[in-house]
Write a protein that binds this DNA or RNA. Structure first.
Lengths: 143, 143
DNA sequence: ACCTTAATGCGACCTATTGGCAACAGGGAA
DNA sequence: TTCCCTGTTGCCAATAGGTCGCATTAAGGT
């Protein structure tokens, strides 16, 4: 998995896609976000900062395309905007359903569960797409 | 955990809430759904079947209140409507991100993970609120 | 019966996202 | 290099799902 701008564009091209300015911009935005986590509206804003004329729906379509390619993963954490993150940065999301905070946990946490699901249900777990819900330390202590 | 209509209404009352016709109707709808899984719009429809004059926003507020009480859990499976289900019926949801199917797996699957998260991160996992994403048997085989 | 406060109706609003369609532009073929 | 095919984009209207404020109503303890 190559997660440089060019590596991603190559994959896109090999899949029959075209490399355009707006796609560069979207991928750039994702790569340069410190957390590598952005909601779709975040990406729209980031892209427009550099190119005010790029259209919203283009960004959505590009995100959809990249998710299809497996470059980014879309996760739905709460009602509201979906969050996108680069697939290479595998880790888990610990979502607090009380205060809304999102912490990260190292990858591998769900390995045993994944193995069992595949064996017993034929289900192939995608840990990066599976946010874990519950209460963070602060909320569980006080509540 | 008492999951009869009256048990739930009792809990609501003890929490300072009031028992009203629309709340009865919402809880009734949830209890009588064969799968015990309904999207918010589903609940709105079900409630309105019996009481056409109940307002949409009332249903949403009631669902929110019940979730707060812990009677039902709200899970976000995909972009689109949130799904609600009775908390007592603990089990896991295996969501296929390709075809959208939702299978169920028995409770307990995440016990070890839950223990570890609590120990190492102070995070209290809510398994019922954590849908597991990936590819179902059919899609992983063909894809 | 009374009073406090929760719950409701209503309707406007909002945000996230999708769809159709004509115009445009990558990038392999000629 | 030019041409052409087809993937992409811009535009903008349309949804869907859900939230908010506010005046009114009603639950339920006293």
């Amino acid at each position: 998995m190559d997660d440089t701008l060019d590596g991603i564009l190559d994959r896109l091209r090999r899949d029959g896609g075209r490399v355009t300015a707006s796609r560069r911009a979207v991928i750039d935005a994702m790569l340069s976000s410190p957390s590598h986590h952005m909601t779709a509206p975040d990406v729209v804003d980031a892209v427009r900062a550099g190119h005010p004329d790029f259209h919203e729906s283009t960004v959505y379509r590009t995100l959809e395309r990249l998710a299809e390619l497996g470059v980014i993963a879309r996760i739905q954490i709460a009602p509201g905007p979906a969050v996108f993150h680069l697939s290479v940065a595998q880790h888990h999301h610990l979502v607090c359903d009380r205060c809304g905070s999102v912490a990260e946990a190292p990858a591998g946490l769900l390995d045993a569960v994944a193995a069992r699901l595949r064996r017993e249900h034929g289900f192939v777990l995608d840990p990066g797409a599976t946010p874990l819900h519950g209460l963070c330390a602060a909320c569980s202590g006080s509540g």
